[in-house]
Simulated assay, not measured.
Amino acid sequence: MKTVIENLHRLTYLNDGQKQSLEVKAQAHLRYSNISFTVMKVTDTELIIQTAQLKHLSENYADMEKLVKVTESVFSPMLYGRKLKVGAKPYVPAPADIVTFDWIKKEMAQQQLKAVELETALGIDKSTLSLLISGKRDMTRAMKSMFYYFFEYNKLVS
């Protein structure tokens, strides 16, 4: 049986109904915030859970403190005398995720670059660059990365 909580089978002290209750709570966090739980270790005195958040369309990201609280809300009713320890891994966006059409324009202005200089440096033809800068063409993740690292490198060498 596929479970939402990785290694849920390690919680041998819980019955199937209790495990199902945990699964329902975990499924909601996965669906609405892309937060997942992994049972790392279970002893008579402690329960160690790793909680991680990945990229989500809602962009509703939790910090470490919030991830710990979410984990406590899911697992605290099922501890039965065990101490809960949480390893929280918040979502860390890729640097290129900040790249937007406005960001490119701002960087061009700050670095005093013209479109023709970007064409030459990046090997992008004039019409494609114009469409990208104006927002008429969506950028792929690779394109965003290219722009991000170009502007970051340009800051270092100038």
Rank of each mutant, 00 (worst) to 15 (best):
F37L: 09
L113C: 00
M78V: 01
L47D: 05
F75G: 00
A121C: 04
E65Q: 13
N60G: 10
I48V: 15
L131M: 10
P77N: 02
L84E: 05
E46K: 14
G123M: 07
Y80N: 14
Q53K: 08
I124C: 10
L67T: 10
A96F: 12
L113W: 09
T128R: 14
E59C: 14
Y148W: 06
G87T: 14
L47N: 10
E59A: 15
A142R: 13
A88G: 06
D102K: 03
T120H: 10
D138K: 13
K106Q: 12
S127R: 10
K155S: 07
A94D: 02
Y153A: 00
A52R: 14
D44Q: 05
E46C: 09
L54Y: 07
Q110L: 04
P93W: 02
K155D: 07
F147Y: 15
Q112C: 04
A142N: 11
D97Y: 08
P95M: 08
P95I: 03
V86R: 13
K55V: 02
S73P: 05
Q53I: 10
E59Q: 15
V39H: 05
P95V: 01
T120G: 00
T51N: 07
V39C: 12
S73Y: 07
P93M: 11
Y148D: 01
P77F: 02
L122F: 03
S76L: 12
K114M: 10
V157Q: 12
Y61G: 09
S76H: 13
L156H: 03
V92K: 11
K83W: 02
L79K: 06
F101Q: 06
T140H: 01
T120V: 09
G135Y: 06
A52L: 01
K126A: 14
P93G: 14
K55L: 12
A62E: 14
D97L: 04
L67W: 07
E59W: 10
A121D: 14
L118Y: 09
L67H: 04
L67F: 06
M78S: 08
K155Q: 15
A115W: 01
K69W: 03
L132E: 09
K136D: 08
K144C: 12
W103D: 04
K106M: 03
D44P: 06
I98F: 04
E46I: 11
M78E: 10
R82H: 11
A62V: 10
S73A: 12
V116N: 01
T43H: 11
A52F: 03
G81N: 04
F151V: 03
V86A: 00
S130K: 08
F151Q: 08
R82S: 07
E119N: 11
H56A: 13
A96D: 03
T51W: 08
M78N: 02
E107K: 09
